[in-house]
Structure formats: structure tokens, C-alpha cells
Simulated assay, not measured.
Amino acid sequence: MLCALIMAGGKGTRFWPLSTEEKPKQFLSLIGEETMIQMTINRVKRIIPIDRIFVSTGDKYVELVKEQLPELPERNIIVEPEGRNTAPCIALSAFVISRYYSDSNIVVLPSDHLINEEDKFVDILTMASDFVNDNNDAIVTLGMEPNRPETGYGYIKVGEQFIQSVNNSVNIVESFVEKPNYEKAQDYINQGNYLWNGGMFVWKTKNVIDLTKRFLPFTYEALKDVTTVEEAKLQEYINTSYHKTDNISVDYGIMERAERIFVIPCDFGWDDVGNWTSIDRYSDKDTNGNVFNAKGYPFKSNNNIVLTNKKILLNNINDLIIVETEDYIMISSKKHEQQIKVAKEHLD
């Protein structure tokens, strides 16, 4: 039995000023009419019923989750009282899911990624879940075939093949690699045995709990009674215990220490939609390469991203990002968009 855990607690600061701490990226319609979290839920609903889909989020986003996902059972909203990184979030969620589906597998998915070829995606999820059923102590991660020397992603070094199916293989993970510089990223592309780490995992619920007990005993002790406390007191128990967990990512806390980790190389049109230039990749453009979601005219201007409410005239400008909200106007060069987050700190 496959369950889904959608992680939706991020603040989406790289899409400021459109994305704010009050309404971050996963709750915005960045590509198409649906919000990112709605796209994610609808994608996994193709193989997992809504009663087995869980969303982990912060207290301040619960109402947004309810508003955008009205069919999601309220018990399936897992509320973190504070942000303590991904390892305790996933552990807490595994304990909650085991209350209702003890003999289950969990696919862990970010709430704000784009996947263009959904048929391939659900086929690979099914393959990963079947593999975990046959290998109870395995963790399967989905690795994306890289098509550019990306410095914003972590990488997975692929080891020897474990099994081969008609369309996909399952390989041993040799190592997880931190975000590289451009030269190192290009070297990974040239070597041909590195994949992008998309932060998607499939494993048994029991295995999540067992590995937490083994590698993060403070987290395990803080959360172990989640499976048995009465329903009416569950959130109160979480609120009083969660601060005792280890503040650590699942990569450092578990993935780099577990022995049985595998990867399925994937090519289903994935993007983490992590910055403004990723919007550029998937939006309609005019003949001069402008993404122009605005009233006005881009005169002799090329390759800009413009989202404004007021009429705007561009005059001989290139490679800019211009975003207007009710409170702010942000103008940035595309080249230095990674510094928007840092620059914003000088504004308030």
C-alpha cells in the first residue's frame, strides 16, 4: 500500500516578492492555473487515493492547505509546530501515517515541483514501491537525468546496476554530492554517472521509523508515542514534544548513513521551479523572448520576465526580471537573481 507525504512547509523566499512568508511558492499559480501544491496532489492522485495522501506544513499554512485542497481529510494535514528541517518532519509524518496505515510505503515529495510527463512519473513511482515491497530495508530515490550543468541542485553519484526492467533500471547509490560550482557540475555531466537529486524518496513506513530510531534516537524518543496517543490529544502531544527532535536534514541525518539506498534514473520533464529563470523555461514568450504577463509594450527589449499590474513600457532593456505586487516593485538582472534573497534583507 502506497501513501504520499507532500512536504509543504517551505517559505519560498527565492520567488520574492510574489512569494512571501504569508503565502509561499507552493500556494501560488506560477505555471498554469493550478497552484503548485494542487498540481502535486492531482499528479499523485492518479495512483494514490486522497485518503492516503498526507501534507506536512507549518501551523500558519494550515488554512491555505484547507482552502486549496478542500477534499483532503483534516487528519491528513500534519502540522509542525516549528521548522526543524526535513528529518524530524519526515519522521513525524511516518509516525502519523503508521497510525492509519501501518503496513505501508511512503513516497516523499516536495509540494512545488513541475513534472511534465506524468505517465512516466507514476510508472516510476509504482516501480519504486514494488521494489521496496521486495526489499523491505531499501530506500529508493528518484534521480533526474541532467541536461545542463546546474549549480543549484545536489547530485547523486550512480553506482552499479541492481536490476533492469524494460524501461528503467534500479542502481545502487554510490554517494550524495553537495551543490557544485559550474566547473564541477560540467564535469558531472561529462562523466555521465551523476543525476540531479530531486528530493523524492520511496521507503517503507516502518523503515523510516527504524532508521530514525537507529540514527536519530532523540527524534525517535520525542515522537514514538505519536502512534498510540488518542486522536483528540495528538496535536497537543506533537506541540509539546517536537522541540526535542534533532534539527537536521534527512540527507545528513539518514541518507548519508543508511546502507541500502538505490536510485532510479528518471527522465519525465522534472524541474524544481526554484527561481525566476525556471519560470522563463516554461512560460510563453513573445518573438523577442520576453515573458510579458503585463499591460504595456516591450520596445526593443529582449529576454525579460515582466509581471506587473500597471501598464509598463520597456525601452531597450534586456535580461531583467520585473515583478510588481501590492507592496513592492522588484527589478533584478537575470544574471544575479540568486542575490534577490540577500538584497531583500537591506529593504526592511
Rank of each mutant, 00 (worst) to 15 (best):
P146Q: 10
T240L: 03
K45P: 08
H113E: 09
L216N: 09
V173F: 07
E230P: 12
L2A: 12
D284R: 03
V208P: 00
T325M: 00
K157G: 13
K310M: 10
C89W: 01
K60M: 14
T227E: 15
D251G: 02
D348G: 03
S129I: 01
F15A: 10
A91M: 02
K335T: 14
N171R: 15
V44S: 07
A4K: 09
H113D: 10
T308D: 09
M127A: 13
V323S: 04
M7Q: 04
D327I: 00
T325C: 03
E221N: 10
V158D: 09
I53R: 03
L347E: 02
S29E: 13
T287Q: 07
L313Y: 07
G192V: 07
F215C: 05
V250F: 02
N318K: 05
K224E: 15
I106A: 04
D246Q: 00
I189D: 05
P24N: 07
F299A: 10
S175V: 08
G296T: 08
V226W: 03
I172V: 15
P265I: 05
N303K: 11
M255L: 12
Y252L: 12
P146R: 06
C266A: 15
K60F: 05
I279D: 02
N304R: 06
E326K: 04
V250C: 06
N290Y: 02
Q161C: 14
S111R: 01
N147M: 04
E259Y: 01
Y155W: 14
N181C: 01
R46P: 11
F95Q: 02
P88M: 04
I238L: 03
V158H: 04
S301H: 11
N168W: 07
I139V: 14
I279H: 02
K335N: 11
A128R: 08
M200Y: 06
N293W: 09
F215Y: 15
I97F: 08
I305F: 06
P81L: 02
D225E: 14
L313S: 14
L142F: 05
L28V: 03
L92V: 14
A222E: 00
E150W: 06
K341G: 15
N135E: 11
